[in-house]
Simulated assay, not measured.
Amino acid sequence: MDTGLNGDVVVVGGGVIGLTTAVVLAERGSRVRVWTRDPVERTTSAVAGALWWPYRIGPIRSARTWALRSLEIYGKLAERPAQTGVRLVGGILGETDLDEVEGWAAGSLAGLRRTTAREYGAGAGVRARLPLIDMPAYLPWLRERLLRAGGTIEERTVTDLAEAEAPVVVNCTGLDAGRLAADPSVRPVRGQIVVVENPGVDTWLVSTAPDGEMACLFPHPGRLLLGGTAQDDVRSLEPDPKAAEAIVRRCAALRPEVAGARILEHRVGLRPVRGTVRLERARLPDGRTVVHHYGHGGAGVTVAWGCAEEAAGLVLPAAP
């Protein structure tokens, strides 16, 4: 059975996980085709605020390893922000303990320290410079990197993984994996973002109130993304006006200049949450290899490169 080495691989799913996995495979010598239902600009990944942080993802130890490897790569991509859409931006992560972060980040986070009461009066927090990825710029750049490596992208709707015409299939279908892999543990967590004209905010901020409500501010070129929501098992992609009003109100409570900022658009996405990421080799009914790679929740961008390298190792196992 062909393991994929110097052979065809079909990656099903064109979000950030699928594209990154395809790039790694193509740059390691595989002939890679991505089958995606939607162009990259209309995937769930395109909606993300895209701050690097291991958010709602497990298993924790693996996720942190994947995240730190991805951090290393994003740091290099941030040297060319105009091309890649990746920047290193300072900001505050509220309700976070410095000692706990230092325990797993091991000196990897630039400028990491406790916040002062003047910086963040809502409670304990940490300040750091983290990758902030402009997804409308980054995803097309990632697509072009795949094409330069010899990969191809086809817009196809897949109803069964067995439809993929290759010796090895990589299942990066996110929320659709619940159906395609018969995995009932995959469920949606709905996120909503309000995009406004930036009134001058140049640092990011993530804050979580005692009742669990979030306020997130992510400055991107020409706009400011305000979040957010995390609604379990809600599948509606229609923006909720009341939720949007509440998002703006919570963000304005932290940064008053946001109040009255002109709204440019509303974005809604469904995070593909699972108890833990599924990353394993299996067999299709006809005996071909399938590598399942899904369940990244709200941290797909954060772990994409580290996770993709591990997935590629399952497609292209080391020679004995």
Results as ranks from 00 to 15, higher is better:
residue 230 A to V: 08
residue 171 N to G: 08
residue 260 G to R: 05
residue 216 C to K: 12
residue 221 P to K: 13
residue 264 L to A: 03
residue 182 A to F: 07
residue 234 V to C: 12
residue 131 P to W: 01
residue 237 L to T: 02
residue 253 A to P: 01
residue 137 A to D: 10
residue 220 H to I: 09
residue 205 L to H: 04
residue 194 V to R: 05
residue 171 N to K: 04
residue 171 N to I: 13
residue 248 V to T: 07
residue 218 F to N: 13
residue 128 A to K: 08
residue 179 R to E: 07
residue 169 V to F: 01
residue 227 G to M: 09
residue 267 R to T: 13
residue 171 N to E: 06
residue 267 R to L: 12
residue 202 D to S: 14
residue 147 L to S: 04
residue 175 L to D: 05
residue 171 N to L: 07
residue 187 R to D: 06
residue 204 W to D: 04
residue 181 A to G: 05
residue 148 R to T: 05
residue 157 T to S: 15
residue 230 A to K: 11
residue 263 I to V: 13
residue 162 A to C: 00
residue 191 G to E: 03
residue 247 I to C: 05
residue 170 V to P: 00
residue 206 V to R: 12
residue 263 I to M: 03
residue 187 R to E: 14
residue 203 T to V: 07
residue 139 L to H: 02
residue 266 H to K: 09
residue 236 S to L: 06
residue 256 P to K: 12
residue 254 L to Y: 09
residue 215 A to M: 08
residue 200 G to R: 01
residue 210 P to R: 00
residue 149 A to M: 02
residue 248 V to Y: 06
residue 193 I to V: 15
residue 162 A to Q: 02
residue 162 A to Y: 00
residue 178 G to C: 04
residue 138 Y to T: 01
residue 228 G to Y: 08
residue 166 A to R: 10
residue 252 A to F: 03
residue 220 H to R: 14
residue 267 R to G: 08
residue 137 A to R: 15
residue 253 A to Q: 03
residue 214 M to R: 15
residue 126 V to A: 01
residue 188 P to Q: 06
residue 185 S to W: 08
residue 238 E to F: 09
residue 136 P to A: 01
residue 130 L to C: 02
residue 184 P to M: 10
residue 234 V to P: 11
residue 148 R to W: 00
residue 173 T to R: 06
residue 186 V to G: 10
residue 185 S to Y: 07
residue 203 T to W: 14
residue 224 L to K: 03
residue 231 Q to V: 14
residue 178 G to N: 00
residue 135 M to Y: 04
residue 159 T to V: 10
residue 134 D to N: 10
residue 270 L to K: 08
residue 217 L to S: 02
residue 172 C to E: 01
residue 163 E to I: 06
residue 212 G to V: 12
residue 145 R to K: 09
residue 196 V to M: 07
residue 166 A to V: 06
residue 198 N to V: 11
residue 202 D to V: 10
residue 267 R to V: 11
residue 269 G to D: 12
residue 192 Q to I: 03
residue 176 D to A: 15
residue 171 N to F: 08
residue 191 G to C: 02
residue 125 G to S: 04
residue 265 E to K: 12
residue 151 G to K: 00
residue 155 E to W: 09
residue 200 G to I: 07
residue 184 P to T: 07
residue 130 L to E: 02
residue 260 G to S: 03
residue 187 R to G: 09
residue 268 V to K: 11
residue 159 T to E: 13
residue 209 A to W: 13
residue 188 P to N: 05
